[in-house]
């Protein structure tokens, strides 16, 4: 008996896996009921959906990039204090003194840019294959919400290094909000926490960046994937024979 199989059949192993190693299709279909990660997927999908041409794997690429950002972001949080007094120096410390600090910061920065690209490209790909059509309309709407959350995450993260690039980009970005009729000035004040970009702004953006927005994104993303799974076996009207996807 293989070791993996022995572990699966032990008392603790069977309580964890709840099923023998899955070899047959039937076992594997059952896995979608008993495995948490697997239950995000449908049991079967249409053949077209596993081709590169159909999705270019942009959705899964966005999720993977979000994963990279979460992991590297947590590492960066250990070395960063969101205050104008320390923020810039902390970034310099991360780059010069922390082991792999520069590499982690690079990963975080480039993955963030790539995630914006991947999410936007995913949106375009879904449009061109018409995957927003009934009954999937609402999942498209959820996707647009995810795009906005991605942009907000990227923008709030942009201020955190507290360098000239960050400071003035956020000054301009928040000044735009002030032009919204009626509530504009209030929205700008709420974002800045004061008359100009300052310590209150940095703290607000930090809290949004590391807590509020990621949690919101994970929540909305869960619904997005859940609806994708529910709809993954649909054949839409003119799908038959259509080679373009």
């Amino acid at each position: 008996m293989k070791t993996s199989e022995r572990i699966r059949k032990s008392t603790i192993g069977s309580s964890f896996f709840r099923s023998p190693d899955r070899v047959t299709e039937r076992d594997r279909a059952a896995g979608h009921w008993s495995n948490f990660l697997l239950h995000l997927y449908p049991v079967r999908v249409r053949k077209v959906e596993i081709t590169f041409k159909y999705t270019a794997f942009l959705g899964v690429a966005s999720v993977v990039l979000f994963g990279i950002l979460t992991v590297t972001g947590i590492f960066l949080m250990f070395f960063y204090v969101p205050s104008p007094t320390y923020a810039y120096g902390d970034i310099q410390t991360i780059q010069n003194e922390v082991a792999f600090g520069q590499f982690l910061r690079n990963m975080h920065r480039w993955a963030a840019h790539l995630m914006v690209l991947a999410v936007a490209a995913h949106l375009a790909r879904v449009f061109y294959r018409g995957a927003y059509k009934p009954p999937k309309e609402f999942n498209w709407v959820i996707g647009v919400v995810l795009l906005v959350l991605t942009l907000l995450l990227s923008f709030t993260g942009y201020l955190l290094p507290w360098d000239q690039l960050a400071y003035w980009a956020v000054t301009v970005g928040t000044a735009m909000a002030a032009y919204v009729p009626i509530v504009g000035d209030l929205v700008q004040e709420l974002m800045l926490g004061g008359p100009t970009v300052g310590s209150a702004t940095l703290l607000r953006f930090y809290v949004l960046h590391v807590a509020v927005l990621p949690v919101a994104l994970v929540g909305v993303l869960t619904v997005h994937i859940w609806r994708w799974r529910k709809d993954s076996m649909l054949t839409m009207d003119s799908d038959q024979g259509a080679t373009d996807a």
Partner: peptide
């Protein structure tokens, strides 16, 4: 939430 987050500062510097 709104009251909590609204900055209580005078305009200008």
């Amino acid at each position: 939430t709104f009251d909590l987050l609204k900055p209580h500062l005078a305009a200008g510097f």
